[in-house]
Design a protein around this nucleic acid. Structure first.
Length: 196
DNA sequence: AAGCGGATCTACT
DNA sequence: GTAGATCCGCTTC
């Protein structure tokens, strides 16, 4: 079974549900993702073009884009061709290997919440900016993305915490899974979607 | 050189 | 359910 990354983030996002993200001893079964396109998506880091921070989004597909915000890290799988921005934010997952390590990194947190939320997931896995740009499809990389059984009970809805293009249902999750994070609207007033 | 605003999380009521 | 902490990248002066 091979892992196919479609050049469209919108297509790839649901395909990543059920796949395995591994860093060292800890592995997570992905249960929640969000698609971020490039110059057509005002909510995407790639919308305004390439900068130092988002450079990996414009690099070759199959790499991990890590950025920091609010004192946390968030991880994205890049699937767009070289020169084109876009990727899939990994929002949540179920820790299926290395539970001891994940619990150590998130003391006092119940197991189903160890990787619930993008910042929690990177913490449980130990992902930091040092992993930015690593090749997910190579054993040489610090983080690996591995194929697994596909999920059949997929739900979708609006993305979490953004203030632009809020109406696009580009968030996908495994229906009913306890590791899926709660929906949250942006706290700031939203801006209109130019595509509508 | 400085200010602003998030693809967030946790604690507390 | 809400408020505060928090910190770095990007825009603007």
């Amino acid at each position: 079974m091979s892992l196919e990354l479609d050049p469209s983030a919108l297509v790839t996002a649901p395909l990543l549900l059920g796949t395995i993200l591994r860093r060292g001893e800890v592995a997570v079964r992905i249960t929640e993702v969000e698609a971020y396109a490039g110059d057509t998506d005002p909510a995407s880091h790639a919308y305004k073009g390439r900068t130092r921070r988002n450079a990996v989004m414009f690099g070759p597909p199959g790499r991990l884009y890590v950025y920091s915000m609010h004192g946390h890290f968030c991880a994205n799988v890049i699937c767009t061709p070289e020169g084109v921005g876009g990727g899939v934010l990994i929002r949540a997952g179920e820790v299926i290997e290395g539970l001891e390590h994940a619990r150590e990194r998130r003391p006092g947190v119940p197991d189903h919440r160890l990787a619930r939320g993008p910042g929690c997931l990177t913490r449980a896995l130990g992902i930091t900016l040092l992993d930015n740009g690593t090749d997910l499809l190579s054993p040489e990389g610090t983080v690996e993305l591995q194929p697994h059984v596909s999920e059949s009970t997929i739900a979708s809805g609006p993305r979490v915490g953004i203030s632009r293009a809020v109406d696009r249902p580009w968030r996908f999750w495994v229906a009913g899974d306890p590791s899926v994070s709660a929906y949250r609207p942006a706290r700031k007033p939203v801006r209109p979607d130019p595509a509508l």
